[in-house]
Amino acid sequence: MSEPIIRELRKEDIQNGFLTSLDSLRKTSNMDNDKAIKIFEKINSNPDHIIAVAELGGKIVGSTTLLIEQKFIHDGGMVGHIEDVVVNKDFQGQKIGEKIMKYILEIAKNRGCYKTILDCTDDVKPFYEKLGFKQIANELRFDND
């Protein structure tokens, strides 16, 4: 099997496997194309909102999102927030998630983030710990129903 190309999301990726790969998190592939393009354009207009993708055989098979937050503390330091790490179920177990994570962590480092954080469930904690993440706190969530 060939190596995936890890790069930033492009508009043409939306209907070329990107939305389908997100189905592993929540059904997304049925989203209207115009709506998806509007979301892409809004995200793409913010240099602190980066989506990295894994392209394999001309199709997007995985992705993750990095949000960079400027702080007042740490002398105006930056924090990276990772969200929506996903690999299409048909391509899991091939170290694609690890490659996407290393790519996005390098971006966070190059952008001056003094830390990069994420929330995850217990079943995937070992994956992130293998990459060097450490459990520091507990996630709490408030849903606006």
Rank of each mutant, 00 (worst) to 15 (best):
K95I: 06
K95D: 04
I96H: 01
I96T: 10
G97T: 03
E98M: 10
E98D: 04
E98T: 13
K99Y: 00
K99H: 00
K99S: 01
K99A: 02
K99N: 00
I100Q: 00
M101A: 07
M101T: 09
M101I: 09
M101F: 04
M101W: 03
K102R: 10
Y103I: 04
Y103F: 08
Y103S: 00
I104L: 05
I104G: 05
E106I: 00
E106F: 00
I107R: 07
I107E: 07
A108I: 03
A108S: 08
K109N: 14
K109Y: 13
K109C: 03
N110I: 00
N110S: 03
N110Y: 02
R111T: 05
R111M: 06
G112T: 12
G112N: 05
G112S: 08
C113E: 07
C113P: 07
C113W: 02
Y114C: 10
K115I: 08
K115R: 09
T116M: 02
I117E: 14
I117H: 06
L118I: 09
D119G: 09
C120E: 05
C120W: 04
D122K: 13
D122Y: 09
D123W: 05
D123C: 01
D123M: 03
K125M: 09
K125G: 08
P126V: 12
P126M: 07
F127K: 04
Y128M: 13
Y128G: 10
Y128C: 10
E129H: 15
E129N: 11
K130E: 14
L131D: 07
F133V: 13
K134T: 10
K134L: 03
K134Q: 15
Q135Y: 08
Q135G: 15
I136D: 08
I136N: 04
I136V: 12
E139P: 08
L140H: 15
L140Y: 14
L140R: 08
